[in-house]
């Protein structure tokens, strides 16, 4: 402790320039600033302009026109509403399934590691491949899942081409890929539940549900919230699966906000307006990040 204390004193008094820590930190932060703050201020500037790509790039100052338009645009409003539905459905199902599967794996006596390793596999896959594989499995002529659903009479039309089933299908693809992450996080929480307390409760005659409610649930609550936040953040980050499966269709049934942004920018080349939409999304992820950092601080991890 003495050494760092003197380092700090030296820095405060301004003697000997920057400490090694700051020399290691500052140049990298400068690079990160170029990579993150520059685009950040640039997207704000874009949102205040009409940006056109005809004959090179041209900016025409438009004031708050893009912003005013966004708050009254029903198409964007609908995309946010669908994003909310998609978000609640994917993250909700992933949390419930993930917690349930983690509780099951935690009780295993034999083969725990093997089962967990196999269950984690989808998580490492490129989302774009998950989407393409989903298309393959639900292809109405050659798809394995389409075949099973048809033969059992559960669903007979084109899965990704029908409004009701397309949304369900892309939600399930996301659930397939990311439930394993929730399983992994919740299992880490379960591993830290105090075994002596569990044994003592057993001796006192508490059944599984009672132990779950009074001992396990309170001890894994923090970890469950972390899982929820990590999934929330990624749910708005990635849009690959929908891009390569339905790209927002059929109709607009799967057109969530990032898909709408991408199409506004790179299909309609309305880049200034897309920038305003993008800043709206950024506000959402900054809110998630705020909650996340609060929780880290409470858990004493953000030192």
């Amino acid at each position: 402790m003495a050494a760092t204390q003197t380092d700090r004193d030296a820095k405060k008094s301004g003697g000997g320039g920057l400490s090694l820590e700051m020399k290691m930190l500052l140049p990298v932060l400068a690079l990160l600033a170029v990579l993150s703050l520059f685009p950040f201020f640039y997207i704000i500037w874009m949102s205040l302009n009409t940006v056109s790509l005809i004959n090179g790039i041209s900016f025409e100052f438009a004031g708050l026109a893009n912003w005013a338009r966004m708050f009254t645009d029903e198409v964007v409003g609908a995309a946010w509403a669908r994003a909310a539905l998609y978000f609640v459905a994917t993250v909700g199902i992933e949390m419930v399934l993930g917690i349930a599967i983690a509780l099951l794996i935690h009780e295993l006596v034999w083969g725990k590691n093997l089962v967990l390793s196999l269950i984690l596999l989808p998580m490492f896959m490129a989302p774009v491949i998950v989407g393409l594989l989903g298309r393959f499995l639900t292809d109405s002529s050659y798809g394995l899942y389409a075949f099973v659903l048809r033969e059992t009479g559960i669903f007979e039309s084109d899965i990704l081409g029908t409004s009701s089933s397309a949304l369900t299908a892309v939600i399930l693809m996301d659930v397939w890929e990311w439930t394993p992450l929730v399983v992994l996080i919740v299992l880490a929480g379960l591993a830290s539940v105090n075994q002596y307390v569990i044994e003592a409760a057993k001796v006192d005659g508490a059944n599984y549900l009672a132990r779950l409610r009074h001992i396990v649930a309170p001890s894994i609550a923090g970890v469950v919230i972390v899982a929820l936040l990590v999934r929330s953040m990624d749910a708005i980050r990635y849009f690959d699966i929908i891009t390569v499966t339905t790209n927002g269709g059929p109709g607009n049934t799967t057109k969530i906000i990032p898909i709408r942004l991408y199409e506004t920018a790179f299909r309609f080349f309305d880049l200034g307006y897309a920038a305003a939409i993008g800043l709206g999304m950024l506000v959402f992820s900054i809110l998630v990040a705020t909650v996340f950092v609060r929780i880290l601080e409470r858990r004493g991890l953000a030192k």
Binding site: S36, P39, F40, Y42, I43, M46, M233, I236, R237, Y238, F239, P258, L261, Y262, A265, L271, A274, A275, G278, L279, M281, L282, F284, S285, I286, V288, A289, F292
Partner: peptide, 10 residues
């Protein structure tokens, strides 16, 4: 944590 769509654009 920034959404990829919002980073790609600028």
């Amino acid at each position: 944590m920034a959404p990829i769509a919002a980073v790609v654009l600028p």
